[in-house]
Each structure stands twice: as C-alpha cells, then as structure tokens.
Amino acid sequence: MFNLINPSRIFYWIEKLINFINSIFFVILIIALTFALILSPPDYLQGDSVRIMYVHVPSAWIGLASFTGIALFSILNFIFKIKNLNLVSKSIAPIGLLFTCLAIITGSLWGQPTWGTWWVWDARITSMVVLLIFYILFILSHKLIEQESKANKVSNLIAIIGLINIPIIRFSVDWWNTLHQPSSIKLDGTSSIHPSMLLPLMLMLLVLLLYCALILLMKYKTEIIRIKKKNIKRI
C-alpha cells in the first residue's frame, strides 16, 4: 500500500508527471482565465466583483484541504511511523500556507467593494487567521528544530491539534452570525451558484490544483534528495 510513496522508482514518475502537467498547464490556464474574466456573466447583485470568487474560493478550499491532508498524514505517521509521510506533509505545507494567505488577501479585496469593509473579525475570517497561524507554526517547527525526529514529532502534534480548527472554519457560517455569507456549495453537493459561474470556478480550481501538484512534486523530490544527501555514506 505504501509502495507508491516509497522513493525508489519515484524519480521516474515525478519527472513524467511534471512534464505532463507542464505540457497542458498553460492551455487550461488560458481557457480558465477567458471564462473567469471575459465569458462568464456578472452577478445580478454584485456585478463584476463576483469574479474575485474565481480565485478566492479555490484558494480557500486548497488551504483547507492541504491542512486536512497534513493532519491525516500526521495521524497515520503517529500510528504507523512511516517516515515518508513526513516528507509528503512537509512538501504540502508551503502550498497550504500560500493559498490560505491568498484566500485572506483576495477575501479582503472582495469585502471592500461588496460589504463595505476590508476587514471584520467575524467567526469565518478569524478562524481562517487561526489556520494561517497553524501553518506558520508547522513550518517554523521544521525550520527551527535542528534534530529531524524531534521536529517531526512537534510538527505532527501541531497538525493534529490544528485539525480541530477545520470543521470550525467549515461550519462557522452556520453556527454563528457572521458577515461572511454561508457556503454556496453544500456538503450534499447542491450548489446555489448558477452553472454559467460554476464552470469558471471549477476551471480555476483545476488550474490551481495542477499548480499545487507541480509544486508538491518538485518539493517532494527536493526532500528526498536532501534525505539521501544527508545519509550519503550510509545508503
């Protein structure tokens, strides 16, 4: 089961995947941007400012999904002690940090023209800031703690504690009064976004996911080389 992430035949597959993504990335990017910025209609209420949704929503989803992934890998690693999982979660972390930041920044840029404010401390936005802090703690624990096994332990613990925050972010808009609107796409799959706007949203999500895959693969390769380099005499 864990052979897939075992770094022995992995370089070959990483190279292949990177080349494949590079070959289709810009085509999909241009299609997605055309739909998001030109072809999709403005909103009946928000006008053209609704286009910010096409970067804001995928960023927030990726930020949440990355942390969930890191936390699940941390749990698996804590139980079964699989070393490679640490490398994977370490490779996901910068992606999650980037997209959580982007979700907050683009959200602020969306809030000003629609709500009339750059920033409010409502439950959704505050819990996103807490997620950002957890990402920073996770990355710092790897940067600051010299001893690798100790750094892994601390970062795993941070990720498992931070997991509690994920459902809080997801349901904050349902549990409490917030300025942020409720989720448009419900857990049962129904959506209150018109199909002509859902298409560019999904295209942008695809583009950003492909980008994430690129970064993840490159970062994972870097981590493997770093480990091998450290143990070069003992391989």
Binding site: P41, P42, D43, Y44, L45, Q46, V50, M53, T114, W115, G116, T117, V120, L179, Q181, P182, S183, S184, S192, I193, H194, S196, M197
Partner: peptide, 10 residues
C-alpha cells in the same frame, strides 16, 4: 456593512 447571500446568478 452589507451582507449578501450565497446565491450567484446572471
């Protein structure tokens, strides 16, 4: 401040 709902349509 204005609060809008989660519905988006042309």
């Amino acid at each position: 401040l204005a609060k809008h709902d989660e519905k988006y349509m042309p």
